[in-house]
Design a protein around this nucleic acid. Sequence first.
DNA 1: CGCGACGTTGATTTGCCTCAACGATTGTGG
DNA 2: CCACAATCGTTGAGGCAAATCAACGTCGCG
Lengths: 191, 191
Amino acid sequence: MIDIELSGLFKGSGLSEQELSTIHNSLTIVHLKKREFLLTKGQIVSHTYYVYDGCLRSFYVDDSGRDHTLQFGIKDWWISDYTAIFSGGKAMMHIECIQDATLYKLSRKRMEALYLEIPAFETFFRKKLERRVEAFHRRTLNNLALSARDRYLSFVKMYPKIEQSVKNYHIASYLGITTESLSRVRKEMNS
Amino acid sequence: MIDIELSGLFKGSGLSEQELSTIHNSLTIVHLKKREFLLTKGQIVSHTYYVYDGCLRSFYVDDSGRDHTLQFGIKDWWISDYTAIFSGGKAMMHIECIQDATLYKLSRKRMEALYLEIPAFETFFRKKLERRVEAFHRRTLNNLALSARDRYLSFVKMYPKIEQSVKNYHIASYLGITTESLSRVRKEMNS
DNA sequence: CGCGACGTTGATTTGCCTCAACGATTGTGG
DNA sequence: CCACAATCGTTGAGGCAAATCAACGTCGCG
């Protein structure tokens, strides 16, 4: 049985105690150590993961072997391969633990069942999706409009907590620049 | 009263005749001519728009005056400023008609009411959001991993219909390159 | 027809990448 | 707890993809 006090999970969702209990019974706890993988390319993506603690990242490895970080997952965020989970396809990304983590996983199948059973649960995730869409619109605009330097500034401003807890090369790969460039940008800022 | 045969609108949604009728009564038809604006920066974003016919684009104008196309809206797509509508903020983008268009608009307020009244309506849009998130994950990966040339190839492959019906400089601003570069990429391809 | 909008081409510049070397920091086994 | 290695971040030199600047041809429309 999972601790009902899952920090921010379902906070402000308006779900009843009983509904929360049903939902919590659908969650499975997962412990992950640094450098372990939650998901690798080619796997069927059947679950989405709530990050209770620690840090993960999802990334895509291109044909030249370069990796590109799509998403970080820190406390209270949900992470999965969203290019695949909704359509039932195979993962094109890897998800890697970069700080020892505690997660709660929820299967896509169970999720769909909960949507039918508990309308407020669907509302809750619909709103999550809305915020995610909004964030991606902003990120895309940043990628289109800003220089490497300004993308970094924007990132630090938006995600100060992430910036503190991940390696530089992870941030670089999120921003679409090299570690060398990021290093130079930071140097320039401290002067 | 709006024609109930709104092409692809709500196709496969499993909504009953009566529910569809309620929804259709919440839609208002809008006719727009080329070069007219549906929305401009700074306005409160209160509606989302279903494109029945024609073509629009949403774009952001940066501090240097360059414009960046975030989204095209063609037949059967929904368009709005998604950086603002969900959170109730002011538009940071413009939406411009680039081919005479017929739209149906739906207010955010009415939409929320319909979500409560008709659960299947919420499910329908939740799935739309899922596909939108998926598309943005892919686009972000393309922006991170691909060269100008390959982003263009990917765009043409993904949206052949759009490619035919908009100006080159619109595509360039969607891809984050200049018209000159796009011209050179196309030249190189035809040889 | 004539003008403005659009696309193309060339010359040059530039922001960021690549490659290489070298400190700094972290982790690990003895 | 130290020694050493591996990982990570920084710095410099040179190169390249795409931007910028500029000029010109073409198309569509009033």
